[in-house]
Design a protein around this nucleic acid. Structure first.
Lengths: 382, 382
DNA sequence: CAGTCTTAAGAAACCGGTTGTTTCAACAAC
DNA sequence: GTTGTTGAAACAACCGGTTTCTTAAGACTG
């Protein structure tokens, strides 16, 4: 017994177990991984002994070493948590949860991790381990994308622009916007405003990818995707629909200094707006609260509609009429698409566009205080 | 030129670069890592050539192999995302964001990832790569804890019970509960109910760690920590404070079938309750909405207070009076504690208990509809 | 009793890096 | 002319697993 089992800090290695059990490490490896048959066998007695020793030593394989040879880690990594999950109540938390749920449900035993660190635009976000699949929330840095493609890692982009060869799931923001505007027009509104950040090129801002800005005056910062396609799509579809219907688009640059109350005063009181389409859930919520404060009754005097995830809306503000982005479905589909690609790597590229749905609740109605519209027999308990 | 640069799929390795540049791989390694001096040197010309070749080949080190030898990955991993982040609006999203923010801010270049997968209680949650630090949200499985300790990985537990030798950050739920109850009593309330899940042993439930239950009837499931200490602490402190003040505690098992409206009817109408302390933010919100629906005016007829994170409250329901768990500070402190431990591994164990704060907004007042209390000159715009 | 087939298990190469040690040439010193 | 020193770079071991290849010993066959 030349070597005593050294008490070095850390986990016991395969060698340690082998030594204790009096066999070679390859034997231990095969026993613990159940790689019997195929030109290898052990006596049951030895097998039991090795297993027992491993258990006693509390042996756990070093997964780093393992993945070095196995070229697989059973890990699915989600990129973009730092910009997608940093503010409360957006769609991405639902997306991520549904991805994790779908992945957990399949038996293959994949694990899901989310990257929460911020990265410079010229920096790779790739983690230190090999990943078997990638989900990209909205977007990732260019080096990241390069590496993913170069290593041949299956990926799905959720709610973001995607190279032709890749897979993506995106909501149909243009269709959704039309739905919203047409709903308001059908109700009889003509003075319909759009409230939200304007797409960058129309405000001279040339800022590229995510930049860090103070997030709605509450001290916490959040990454905002200055050039996300939804900015462009919703804005353009709004203008297009309004003009198609012969109505004047009413937009203004999202004013960070002015509060929702100031916005309401400007639009509703001064410009006769009777309905507002808000870019996001939080914006909608703030407008709703501002209306409350100012004594503007919703929906009698003002109709309000916003883009939102159904789950977030139900939990946080039941009552708001909204355009459902169907975040849960996006997450599920993304996960399924990814697993499909992982299983048979031949699976080609697919770009899925998910229709958005208009969900009518209690914040839209005829202008001028008609209580309940004829065509939608919904209850109003306001 | 015997070997041509093989077009095998995947990233070029150190060997590939070495071959192209006509040097050995150790030379490449040292050049790219700037490990000059210390018994090693290269001609500037060679150095330039190697760097150029690496750039041209788009070489990126395989971080798995790297961390195998380096015993360090610059990675901080957050455990417990699946139970902590699966429902919207709880404190953990704020915790995680603040951790990431603090870690990103230090120059050491650590990355933060979150585990979102669900794990069986007897399963290790350890990722496939080595981590330099761990944050545990509320709790992790026993094997995970074992491994963390055995490998000597620095860790901090956020809002959960912690072994004596470890580090933890927890809110002072007992103090916070007292603050809430005393606030209500000072206002003049005597019929104060506690609404929330009761600690397991008092309801015969013997369920252990996180179990999966349907989450508030909206289809999505969520892990609920059936035996989290806050259940016990808030409940016990409530009962204790009430009894100390000679008042009758009013509790009932959290009734999943009954809605918030049914609860309100039972308590307010039938048992004369004038104030409710809700266990969580969502509970508080639902009670508020139910009160609205039932025509119970808040705070004139019913005072409402709940436990919540300040940021979530501001964003989702400004107006609710609440006990601030100070999630942002918990996150920041946890991150700092962890970084401290990583830097000098001698740093001992510390258990930080964060005081909770009472934040008075618009949902608590004198019983019987007194409009503004004398002692707190807050505006009420209701 | 030699030859072949199983069974049981070990040796060694490999994954892709890092790093301690060695080699080799050129040049300086004695 | 031999020895020392230094600069430049290769060699080889190692991290902790997996896997291919090989070997040793018995069992079976003819």
């Amino acid at each position: 017994m030349a070597k005593t089992h050294s008490v070095k800090r850390g986990m016991p290695s395969l060698d340690d177990v082998a030594e204790q059990a009096g066999v070679s490490k390859s034997t231990v490896s095969r026993i613990l991984n159940n790689r019997l048959g195929n030109g290898f066998s052990v006596k049951e007695e030895v097998r039991q002994r090795v297993i027992e020793v491993a258990r006693k030593m509390n042996y756990r394989p070093n997964l780093i070493a393992k993945s070095l040879t196995m070229h697989s880690t059973q890990m699915i990594h989600i990129f973009g948590g730092s910009h997608a999950l940093s503010d409360l109540g957006n769609i991405y938390q639902t997306v991520v949860n549904n991805i994790a749920q779908v992945v957990d449900a399949v038996s293959d035993g994949y694990d899901v991790t989310v990257d929460m660190s911020r990265h410079a635009p010229d920096e790779s976000e790739m983690p230190a381990w090999r990943i078997d699949g990638a989900i990209i929330l909205a977007q990732c840095t260019r080096p990241t994308m390069q590496e993913i493609v170069q290593m041949g890692i299956p990926y799905v982009i959720v709610n973001g622009r995607c190279p032709q060869e890749g897979c993506s799931v995106t909501p149909d923001d243009i269709g959704g916007t039309r739905l919203a505007v047409e709903h308001l027009i059908e109700l009889g509104h003509t003075r319909i405003a759009y409230s939200g950040p304007l797409p960058p090129y129309s405000t001279q801002t040339s800022a590229q990818p995510p930049i860090r800005v103070a997030h709605d005056d509450c001290g916490l910062e959040a990454d905002v995707l200055v050039s996300h396609s939804s900015l462009q799509d919703r804005y353009a579809a709004y203008v297009e629909t309004m003009e198609r219907c012969g109505l004047e688009p009413i937009v203004s640059a999202h004013d960070k200094t002015g509060s929702a109350e100031a916005y309401l005063k400007r639009k509703v009181f001064e410009r006769g707006v009777t309905a507002i389409l808000a870019y996001g859930h939080m914006g909608g919520l703030h407008l709703l609260q501002a209306a409350h404060t100012l004594g503007v009754s919703v929906p009698e005097q003002l109709s309000l509609i916003c883009f939102c995830d159904e789950y977030a809306n139900r939990v946080m503000s039941p009552g708001l009429t909204f355009i459902d982005l169907n975040a849960a479905a996006m997450g599920r589909i993304a996960a399924e698409l990814l697993l499909e690609q992982i299983r048979n790597s031949g699976a080609g590229s697919r770009h899925i566009v998910l229709p958005e749905k208009l969900v009518i609740r209690k914040t839209t109605a005829h202008p001028n205080g008609a209580s309940v519209t004829a065509r939608s027999g919904r209850e109003r308990s306001y």
